[in-house]
Simulated assay, not measured.
Amino acid sequence: MSKSRLMHLSILITVLALLVAGCTPAAAPATKAPEPAASGVTADMQGLIDAAKAEGTLTTIALPHDWCNYGEAITGFKAKYGLQINELNPDAGSGDEVEAIKANKDNKGPQAPDVIDVGYGFGPQLVEEKLVQPYKVSTWDTIAADSKNADGYWYGDYYGVLAFEVNKDAVKNVPQDWADLLKPEYKGQVALSGDPRASAQAQMSVYAAALANGGSLDNVAPGLEFFKKLNEVGNFVPVIAKQATVAKGETPVITRWDYNALADKTALAGNPNIEVVIPKTGVIAGVYIQAISAYAPHPNAAKLWMEYLYSDEGQLIWLKGGCHPIRYNDMVKRNVIPAEITANLPAADLYAKAVFPTIDQINAAKKAITDGWDKVVGADVK
């Protein structure tokens, strides 16, 4: 018998023996995920922490401490990792953040932001103009696909709805809907929380007013006309409103995200009394997004900041501030949200009419508002 036939016969005998014995060849061992160290931190994560600590600083922009509980997030991050945070212009709008990246492309100094938190509609611009770099946080899979860029260039962080924040000590009758704001009793009392030519929050206010006045997610013109009327009757105050202007009665009625209004109510603690109203019509929801600058002076600190914000710990900090974190559904499913936090949130039925515009709709609305504000409304908000 030839060597070839002997070899084939040997193989056949081996296979038959395995079948008779009910055995199959052993599978290759599965690749194991990195084991956490005694501290509970994986080797990859520890490497990122070490690299971030070597950089020593994180530079943020447009993060007021009372916005979505960012004060606690900033304090917690510094305490947890021992990094310093350089906070640029807390009251800047989303457009200002984008411009800050552009203005500091070749500058690694203290005015160059590492990270930004901007309106949802800015996402495509950030990618198209190559202003941000990709990074997928370790909790990436628990962020809904329609709330993130597939390649990791940006991802949703939290959302809320546009509400009225009212100083009840200065306003006799609290307005309940957009149409109420045109009444003579609100003369010189109504303001926006940003410049609609640059601020996503202010733009979404115009968008919401459009929905309440015959417009749609594809037609914001009625929103501009509404603010034109508001300005013509003398009710609109062309200043960027904030907690201090509300408290002093300079802008006793302002439109802003519900979580910011709730934060002001808590911070002021009845001095003055603040009422937060979800309007009866024109209830619009807005998602904000996080991204890392393509020119970040501290890229590892920026990545560590993202890991912190998108961990359960960071998401709960936002929720405590009245925001709905982007991983909210995942955390509810895993039952990791303390009851004392949910007890302080507005009733869910108040949000039943909320609508979520798409990025394309937001971008179209943003262009219409920024192009049309001066022409239609003619109020220089600053």
Rank of each mutant, 00 (worst) to 15 (best):
M1V: 15
M1S: 15
M7F: 14
M7N: 12
I11T: 12
L16K: 05
L19K: 09
A28D: 03
T31G: 06
A38H: 05
S39L: 05
I49A: 05
K53G: 02
E55I: 04
L58S: 06
G71H: 11
Q84I: 07
S94L: 08
E97F: 09
V98L: 14
V118Q: 03
F122M: 13
G123R: 10
P124K: 10
L126W: 08
L131A: 12
Y135Q: 01
V137R: 01
W140S: 09
N149K: 09
D151Q: 15
G156L: 05
N173A: 13
W178L: 06
D180A: 13
L181C: 02
L192M: 15
S193E: 10
G194S: 14
G194T: 11
Q201N: 14
A202T: 12
L211Y: 09
A212Y: 06
G214C: 12
S216D: 06
N219M: 01
N231I: 03
V239G: 00
G249S: 03
T251E: 02
I254C: 01
N260G: 13
G270K: 05
V276P: 07
G282L: 10
A285H: 05
G286T: 12
V287N: 02
V287T: 04
A291C: 03
I292P: 01
A296F: 00
P299Q: 07
A302W: 04
P325K: 09
I326K: 07
V332S: 01
V332C: 05
R334Y: 00
R334Q: 11
N335C: 00
I341C: 01
L345M: 14
A347L: 05
D349W: 07
Y351C: 00
P357H: 07
K366V: 09
K366H: 13
D374C: 02
K375Y: 02
K375D: 15
